[in-house]
């Protein structure tokens, strides 16, 4: 049962952790702690409040963000050119196939730049909406509107109705 969860979701969750925290050993530690927490709290997961993946994602993301704010990691998620992150995934350990990351780029490139930006920061870099608003001087309402537009577009690209 636990193995099933791990095999199905570790890739997507590790993708999230490793984009928030660039240091591999720390990202692995986050995934480790996240899975222990997921397993400990699995009985508190309520399907009425959302999908299992969302629940696991939020646990992982929160741990990664907490870790990135702790002293051992100097907010390195704030550095680095955002437009390169898809390529940086591609370049990582060559023995692992990152076919999916290519599909990601294709999907994101179909969005207008300002929507792509919001999706990248909120979903892939683990920023909150207020963080994006403050750091890049975009009104919070605009961030929200762009997210809504981006998600509507993404759903049609991904054929989800």
């Amino acid at each position: 049962m636990f193995e099933y969860l791990y095999d199905h979701y570790s890739g997507a969750l590790y993708g999230v952790a490793s984009r928030i925290i660039s240091k591999e050993s720390v990202a692995e530690e986050v995934l480790h702690d996240a899975f222990l927490r997921i397993w400990e709290r699995i009985e508190s997961y309520d399907p009425g409040k959302g999908r299992l993946f969302t629940w696991m994602l939020n646990i992982t993301r929160n741990l990664a963000i907490d870790k990135s704010r702790s002293k051992e990691i100097s907010r390195d998620r704030k550095t680095g050119d955002i437009s390169n992150f898809v390529h940086s995934v591609d370049r990582a350990s060559p023995e692992i196939q990152h076919v999916d990351a290519i599909g990601l780029k294709e999907v994101l490139d179909q969005l207008p730049d300002e929507q792509k930006f919001v999706v990248e920061y909120l979903y892939l870099r683990g920023y909150t909406q207020s963080e994006v608003a403050e750091e890049f001087n975009i009104p919070l309402g605009t961030v929200k509107t762009r997210l809504r537009l981006a998600m509507t577009a993404l759903r049609s690209k991904l054929k989800i109705t």
């Binding site: 636990f2 193995e3 791990y6 570790s10 890739g11 997507a12 590790y14 993708g15 999230v16 490793s18 984009r19 692995e28 995934l31 480790h32 899975f35 222990l36 959302g50 999908r51 993946f53 969302t54 994602l57 995934v89 990582a92 692992i96 196939q97 990152h98 999916d100 990351a101 599909g103 990601l104 999907v107 999706v119 979903y123 892939l124 998600m151 993404l154 759903r155 991904l158 989800i160 109705t161």
Partner: peptide, 27 residues
């Protein structure tokens, strides 16, 4: 549900396979 599914599909595409040793360690 549709929103969450879109996020899930998106992040699946952004997946990164952890080193196999990590699975053993977590288990």
């Amino acid at each position: 549900d549709a929103i969450e599914e879109a996020v899930e599909r998106l992040l699946e595409r952004a997946a990164k396979t952890p080193r196999p040793e990590l699975k053993t360690k977590i288990m």
